[in-house]
Nucleic acid binder design. Structure first.
Lengths: 109, 109
DNA sequence: TCGGTATTTGGCTAAAATGCCAAGCGTTGA
DNA sequence: TCAACGCTTGGCATTTTAGCCAAATACCGA
């Protein structure tokens, strides 16, 4: 594996890792359905400490998946790249595809 | 977030986490292009200890992404779910989409 | 049966990820 | 001006992940 090839995989991994947590996945899913949410709303939905949620949001933002918009003393987050929505379809396909060749699986043709 | 909702995200996370490593992502990509590879072939391509690669393969297998086929004293691995291929397209879309509304991005419409 | 090859597993150390509390900061409204 | 609110950041303990070596296991050919 060349350095260049490795770099390409590392770029992908940054995005994938950002999604590799139940709370963060929930947040992205929630933002995809409601457009935007402030930190306190997400915190209540998630049920964790607000500092924890804030760090999850920061991580998603650094990965380029969400963006923030400060309004008053609140910060609203929303998806930065609509394409991230396809991500869930992809994952769900794998989750629901048991590979036996019989089960219906959207992505398995 | 209900227990049921959490469970759904955790199922997704298991798949996503399995892909969240450069070596494992490379392996899946390689298998998608060549059909199957034995452990020693992948080990040489990756350039890590064979035990390390073996553990990565075990992890991918447990996530339901790849399957193994023992033949002689070698073990050949291949993709178990073809739908995992869409995964790369999705990620690549996010990686290549800077969200400025100008850049071309397959998934961003 | 024995040595050699291919792979997995156990053990261990180092690094990264999580989550809470406490402290810091900017904004709003008295 | 100041107290309250919303959020972020620093610090710290705990858990998870990664990767190497060594040992164990499985199979092949002589």
């Amino acid at each position: 594996m060349t350095a260049k090839t490795l770099a390409r995989y590392e770029a992908r991994v940054r995005v994938v890792k950002a999604m590799a947590h139940p709370t963060r996945m929930f947040i992205v899913d929630e933002l995809s359905r409601t457009g935007e949410r402030c930190v306190c709303e997400l915190t209540e939905m998630v049920g964790a400490d607000i500092s924890t949620v804030s760090k999850h949001l920061s991580l998603l933002k650094n990965a380029g998946i969400i963006q923030d918009d400060k309004r008053g003393n609140q910060v609203y987050y929303s998806l930065r790249v609509p394409c991230i929505l396809d991500f869930f379809r992809c994952i769900e396909s794998v989750v629901g595809c048991n590979g036996d060749g019989k089960t219906k699986c959207a992505a398995c043709r």
